[in-house]
Design a binder for these strands. Structure first.
Lengths: 241, 241
DNA sequence: GATTTTAAGCGTTTAAAATACGCTTTTTAT
DNA sequence: ATAAAAAGCGTATTTTAAACGCTTAAAATC
C-alpha cells in the first residue's frame, strides 16, 4: 500500500509500506519566527502530486538509529539551513486513526528562530512560506491542533523562561521586544509598564547604538545577557515576564 | 533476540523481537498518590527473572490499533483497577540508546489518584509499592529522569489548574489540602495565608461535617465544586494556587 | 525655520496581591 | 484545672501590578 494522500512525511525506505501493519514514528516541527512585528509560522505547500496544494507542517520519519530530537533537528536543518535553533518537545500525537495512510505517531517539536537568519532560497525550494497566526490556512491531518497546542506551550513557557529572545536578532530595542510579547500573547501591553518590568529583571544590556527603523527618534538597542540570567536563576530568582 | 535484561515492558506478541531492527513504541506511567501527608509514587519490583529485583515504572508497548493515551489508560487499569483517573501526557523519551534491548521510544504519562481508591490486592500482585519522593530507589533505564520530569510538570500545572483535588478524597479538610501542596512543592506554607488564598477562589464548598483524624479539635470537611470552577474559568479567571 | 507629529523614555499614583504575624477557639492530654 | 496543639479568623505591612501624566528627540509639514 502506498502512503495516504494526506500524508506529508516520507516513509523510511528501508522498509515496505504497510497500512496498520507497522507502527511508524515521525516528528513534525512547528517553526515560529518573528518579523515585521508579527509572530509567524513556517508552513509548506506541497508542489508535487500526491497532495499538491496541501498545507502542512514539515516533518519526517524517525530513523531506526536516530534520537527523536535528533530527527527534529535534522528536519530543521534541511528546511532552514540552521542548526543552533531553540527547540522544545511539544507533545506526542498518537491517535490510531490520526493518519489514514499509516499507523504513525508523531512527536511534535516547536522551534524558535530569527527569520532573517535562515536560508531563504532553501525554504523557498521546499515550498515554504511564513504566515502570521491569523492567516494560517487549514492544515493537513492534525497539524492545526499541533500548532494550537505548541502555541499554548510557547505562551506558558515564555512566562517563566526568556525564550522570547530566541526570536529576536542579537540586538533589539525595548519596543521591538514589547511587540514580540504582544504578538505572542495577542494583547496590547502598556509600553511604560513593559519597559519598567523588563528592565527590572536586569538581564538586558543597553548598547550605545540606536535603531532608527521603528521611529523618527530611534530607540536604544539592547542585548540579552545570558550570564546575568544564569546568575539570576542560580540565586533562586523566578524569572517572569 | 530476546528483550534486554533491563527492559520492563512486554513486546507485542504479534511480532518477532529484533534489536534495532524495528522501532517500538511504549508508554510508561508515573503514578502519583497522596496518603499520610505525603506525595507518593507507585513503582514496581519485578519478582521474576529476568530483571528480578529491578525497580521501575509500569509500562507497556502500544498496540498497533490502539491510541497512545488509550494504552496508558489500559496500563493504569491493569495495575490499579481504576479507569477514571486523571492522566496527562508528560514527555516522550526517544534516545536511540535509551533501552539496550530494543529500539523503543516511550511516551510517558503521569497519573494522579486517591491511594485509598485502588485495588490493593491487584497492585500487590504486580509487585507494586508506594514510595515517598525522598525514598524512591534507583529505577531502571531512564525512569528516574521520567519521574523527575513528571514531577516538574505536575508542579507547574498544579499552579494554574486545580489538579491537587485529584489526589484527595471527595471530602477533605483545608489542612489536608495544605499538606498536599506542601508535599508537591516541598516547602512549608503559612496555614493562615493558605486558607485565605484557597477560600478566596470560591471553588470549595464547606460541609457540615468535621474530620477528627488530624487534630483534637477537628477540621471542617470541604469538597471541590467543579461547576463553580468551570464558571470561574469561563468568566476568564486565571485559577492559581 | 517654526510647528506639528510620533514614538521613546522617565516618572508618580493608585489598586491589588502576597507575606508576616497576632489572637481566639476547641478539644484532648496531663 | 491547666497546659498543649491545631483550627480558624483577623489585621498590618510589603511587594507587585496597573493606570496614566509628562518630557524628549527627531523627522515631516507648513
Amino acid at each position: 500500500m502506498t502512503p495516504s494522500s494526506a500524508s506529508t512525511a516520507q516513509a523510511p525506505n528501508n522498509d515496505f509500506y504497510a497500512a496498520h501493519d507497522k507502527l511508524y514514528v515521525a516528528t513534525d516541527c512547528i517553526i515560529f519566527g518573528f518579523d515585521d512585528g508579527d509572530l509567524k509560522l513556517l508552513i509548506f505547500k506541497r508542489r508535487v502530486e500526491p497532495d499538491s496544494g496541501i498545507w502542512s507542517l514539515i516533518g519526517s520519519f524517525v530513523k531506526i538509529d536516530e534520537d527523536v530530537d535528533e530527527a527534529a533537528r535534522r528536519v530543521l536543518k534541511e528546511i532552514t539551513g540552521l542548526e543552533a535553533i531553540y527547540m522544545e518537545q511539544s507533545k506526542t500525537y498518537g491517535k490510531a486513526e490520526r493518519d489514514p495512510g499509516y499507523r504513525c505517531i508523531s512527536v511534535a517539536h516547536y522551534a524558535l528562530m530569527r527569520i532573517n537568519d535562515h536560508d531563504r532560497e532553501l525554504t523557498q525550494s521546499h515550498g515554504a512560506f511564513w504566515y502570521t497566526l491569523q492567516e494560517i490556512p487549514k492544515l493537513a491531518l492534525d497539524h492545526t491542533e499541533m500548532v494550537s497546542d505548541a502555541l499554548d506551550k510557547l505562551r506558558r513557557r515564555a512566562r517563566y523562561q526568556p525564550i522570547g529572545f530566541e526570536l529576536l536578532p542579537e540586538k533589539f530595542t525595548i519596543p521591538q521586544l514589547q511587540k514580540l510579547y504582544e504578538s505572542i500573547y495577542q494583547r496590547e501591553l502598556d509600553p511604560r509598564n513593559f519597559r519598567k518590568k523588563v528592565l527590572s529583571l536586569k538581564v538586558l544590556v543597553k548598547l550605545d547604538e540606536k535603531d532608527k527603523s521603528g521611529s523618527k527618534r530611534g530607540a536604544y538597542l539592547y542585548r540579552f545577557d545570558s550570564e546575568k540570567y544564569q546568575e539570576l536563576l542560580e540565586s533562586g530568582y523566578n524569572f517572569e515576564i
